[in-house]
Design a protein around this nucleic acid. Sequence first.
DNA 1: CATGAATGAGTGTTCATTCAT
DNA 2: AATGAATGAACACTCATTCAT
Lengths: 199, 199, 199, 199
Amino acid sequence: MALDKKNSQKYQLIIDAAVRVIARNGYHYAQVSKIAKEAGVADGTIYLYFKNKEDILVSLFRMKMGAFISAIEKRMTTCANAEEKLQQIVDMHFTQFSAQPDLSVVMQLEMRQSARDLRLQINEVLKMYVHLMEDVIETGKEEGIFSPHLDEKLGRQMLFGTLDEMVTNWVMKDRKYDLRTLSNPTFNMLLAAFKDDGS
Amino acid sequence: MALDKKNSQKYQLIIDAAVRVIARNGYHYAQVSKIAKEAGVADGTIYLYFKNKEDILVSLFRMKMGAFISAIEKRMTTCANAEEKLQQIVDMHFTQFSAQPDLSVVMQLEMRQSARDLRLQINEVLKMYVHLMEDVIETGKEEGIFSPHLDEKLGRQMLFGTLDEMVTNWVMKDRKYDLRTLSNPTFNMLLAAFKDDGS
Amino acid sequence: MALDKKNSQKYQLIIDAAVRVIARNGYHYAQVSKIAKEAGVADGTIYLYFKNKEDILVSLFRMKMGAFISAIEKRMTTCANAEEKLQQIVDMHFTQFSAQPDLSVVMQLEMRQSARDLRLQINEVLKMYVHLMEDVIETGKEEGIFSPHLDEKLGRQMLFGTLDEMVTNWVMKDRKYDLRTLSNPTFNMLLAAFKDDGS
Amino acid sequence: MALDKKNSQKYQLIIDAAVRVIARNGYHYAQVSKIAKEAGVADGTIYLYFKNKEDILVSLFRMKMGAFISAIEKRMTTCANAEEKLQQIVDMHFTQFSAQPDLSVVMQLEMRQSARDLRLQINEVLKMYVHLMEDVIETGKEEGIFSPHLDEKLGRQMLFGTLDEMVTNWVMKDRKYDLRTLSNPTFNMLLAAFKDDGS
DNA sequence: CATGAATGAGTGTTCATTCAT
DNA sequence: AATGAATGAACACTCATTCAT
């Protein structure tokens, strides 16, 4: 029987080791051997669970971002309308990164140093998030809460670009302030932008 | 007289060659020897004008981003108020990247793969842009055009994050559409966000 | 278990390959890749056993000179007095170099081209030889065989300088004569110098 | 008319610059450009007076060692017999190095790092010194002062090896003691060795 | 399943030398 | 005679990946 990779204990062990090693040393100093050592396995063992180094990173992103998005999706179901949904996206985006400092560094700074190929795969994972955001905007338009002229794609790019830039700035400032306090003012700006797109 | 590096013809030659080579091959395949060949000089000549490879990239960014921001600053002087200034920022941000496809790829995709050290230097250059944006927001508040509750930093992060995300998406879609058509709707969204921040 | 470097077979293999490559090509043409090829290992393997290129040379010197001196020390124990000990030093110095032509070239000619740093480390190893020589001189004085006015340091410098110069001349003359025939006349000169230092 | 190299002012200027640069920076950091700068000429000018870098070093050695040996030869003429001549060799060898600290470092430490080829040329220059030494020994034998069994070559190797080792030790100890005080005891040891070679 | 020793491709940088001015 | 900008060959070292045990 083939190795049931994804559910194996070691698979998780290695991914979590990778997050710590990258956060601590930076992307360029996160050698496979260092990750193996941190995970407490032999170098070769890594290759029983991952195709190659890039696969560790893609998997890392897939697992962590998957959980990240799932948490948001789950919360969506409790929301009465698109406005609340937008608020939850902003709030949970900030809250989840706040709770995982190592992961924040890895996602916002280190993984962006990856090669073009890797980033294409990252984008695949992010599509889930993109769809979720565009769905909310579409819903808001249907509900009459957002402007009928609001373009889903543009709105989503503003939403994602804004949140991403804010988290990146927070990480670059060494997380010296509480990211969650930005939640409300950011939500308000976005809501205003979406309600009245000025046309 | 010693080599007047920055103003020499070769200095520019090498930087422009670097833009083309990085755009064509990607950051990781942009070897110094390849840049030298593209510039039509010997490998060693590179080191008469640049301290090392990283210095080429920092200089590239400084020169190109400097010109980019200067052009916007110059345009600012022709604007009657903050609203017009905001419009010009959005418009020129998109227009300038539209006009320089190679540079767009380098700035939005390739240079972000650079090591942490390099990115710290990049951020220094970007500070000019940051100040310019925050100045416009402050002016808008003084003029009563933007909401008095608008936070300069948050507003700037939304502005930059939005523009950056839009250009990145455009580059990733292989520049298949006209970036400049996004100018107006984007400006309108941002203006709405800044006018009424919802408080 | 971690790689037991010093005692591994490959460690010796590489050092012996280095001796041959340096003797054959000269110090400046003894590239790491050439040594690896001669040893029948990959370039990278070298770095599992040695910190860097300089470390190969220091280790080479330490191993070979260590064995060289140990052999002399061992012989010392069979000697009745300082005169015999002096004779054994001279004799074994010449005999051991005679038996290892490649090593002679490396020690007398090639390794002296090394950088200052390396030579400091070499001197550390040579201290053992220095002490051995000075001990013999001191013993000789106590036994009344050598002049009571003989200075240990000066005597040692004459002893080492003489032997070293003779081996160097022999190597430079392409080892065309039998070094061991110099043993007796050299010993006699040194003995005369040490017996009656003229004061 | 061809450049009268050897007698030109710049020729000397460059050689003296080389001595200072090598003494100060070490052989491996004595780049041609650094020597040119120290001499106050352009890099290219060096090549009007010297064939290549090695030629600077050989010329340096030839000039300095030539003067060194000439001074000894001149003194020889004032000596009544071989014993006095031997004394003068030892004394002047130490005295001259004492008086030229930079040159001592260059001759005893730095130039020995040179490639094999260079050292062959150095040996050519040293032959003058070798002959001078062997002549003194031969004279001493004829005068009945030295043992009739003394081998000229061996005696010369002891003489040169001893002096050389002593100067090298002095340089390596950062010239912390007065080299000239070694003159008498060293002479006495050598004289004893040459008088009675033990046969 | 697990190990870890071995592999070998790939590249930024220096510096002696040249030659157009 | 003198300059100094330009040249380009040469090389130590890292690290992702493999595979015999």
